[in-house]
């Protein structure tokens, strides 16, 4: 019986072997991840398959969460507190921020426990483990796409014109995804070592929610505090989305560049921390 009669011939690019040396980091991590890109897709597909097989409302959950938050925040901050958002309809104003926030929140809280939840796999078989948290980010990306569609509909319904400035959304989304992936990698790696992360994460996310100008405009933040707020990449993303969609103008250059730089720096840091910690995952997960 030949190998092909037994099943299939494997593609050559996944069959080259490897060298592991004590005390040294794997120098070819990015290449391994690229070779295993099919795995990233498989894990993403698994998340989606499992999620929508179990939930009765299925895909609707992706939109229900930002929609419900829009209603609540509109009631509290617009009807009760009468916050000034520069003349825009509050639901559109807040939904613009919630689109980004919901993605970040869902992806990070989903990605952080992935290594621990898949301990059976991590202990028994080798694969680029960063595929686990990154697949969660990708899977939640589908929700983001749906939320963005609803956002565009809302903009039209509330009479905010759809202008070419809306194209600024694309680079802003890149910053959002980079920052989210960075937090996912960092959180997942630290969670293997310190299970405290599970308890701390909801608190940290809540702080982030209020620290980011989602329910209030950046203009309400005092000038001194605005410098601090700018270090949070989500600030640049949310304020930028409002510039592009509501004000039909390019996002503030300095603010956006700071956001991009911080997000990129954290992504590199997150990847390094993850791959360093990776050596011990199978021993301690």
């Amino acid at each position: 019986m030949s190998a092909s009669a037994a099943g299939y011939r494997a593609s050559p690019d996944s069959a080259s072997g490897y060298v592991v040396e004590g005390g040294r980091r794997d120098a070819h991590r990015l290449r391994a991840l690229w070779r295993h890109r099919g795995l990233l897709w498989s894990f993403t597909l698994r998340e989606l398959q499992v999620r929508y097989r179990q939930a009765a409302l299925g895909f609707a959950w992706a939109l229900l969460q930002p929609a419900a938050l829009t209603l609540v925040t509109t009631l509290v901050f617009h009807t009760f507190l009468r916050i000034d958002v520069g003349g825009f309809a509050y639901p559109v104003f807040v939904f613009t921020g919630l689109v980004a926030w919901t993605f970040f929140h869902t992806a990070v809280s989903g990605a952080v426990p992935t290594l621990v939840n898949n301990a059976g796999l991590v202990r028994k078989i080798w694969f680029p483990r960063e595929a686990l948290p990154l697949a969660t980010v990708l899977a939640v990306g589908l929700d983001l796409a749906a939320a963005l569609l609803l956002w565009v509909v809302l903009l039209a319904v509330f009479g905010v014109g759809l202008t070419p400035a809306l194209l600024w959304t694309l680079p802003l989304l890149l910053i959002l995804v980079a920052f989210t992936a960075a937090c996912a990698l960092l959180g997942a790696a630290i969670n293997v070592r310190f299970r405290d992360v599970k308890h701390a994460l909801p608190l940290v996310l809540q702080v982030f929610f209020f620290a980011t100008p989602i329910v209030y405009p950046l203009a309400l933040v005092p000038a001194g505090w605005r410098r601090v707020a700018a270090l949070n990449p989500l600030t640049g993303v949310v304020a930028g989305l409002r510039d592009a969609a509501l004000h039909a103008r390019a996002p503030d250059v300095e603010r956006t560049l700071i956001s991009a730089a911080v997000a990129l720096l954290l992504l590199v840091l997150g990847y390094i921390v993850f791959t360093r910690a990776d050596r011990r995952f199978a021993d301690i997960v």
């Binding site: 494997a10 072997g17 040396e21 080798w126």
Partner: peptide, 19 residues
């Protein structure tokens, strides 16, 4: 299987590994 690295020493595997 490179699930966990050795503290010292070296492992070389040539070709696809399956467990």
């Amino acid at each position: 299987a490179r699930i966990t690295p050795p503290d010292t020493g070296r492992v070389t595997v040539r070709g696809r590994l399956s467990s």
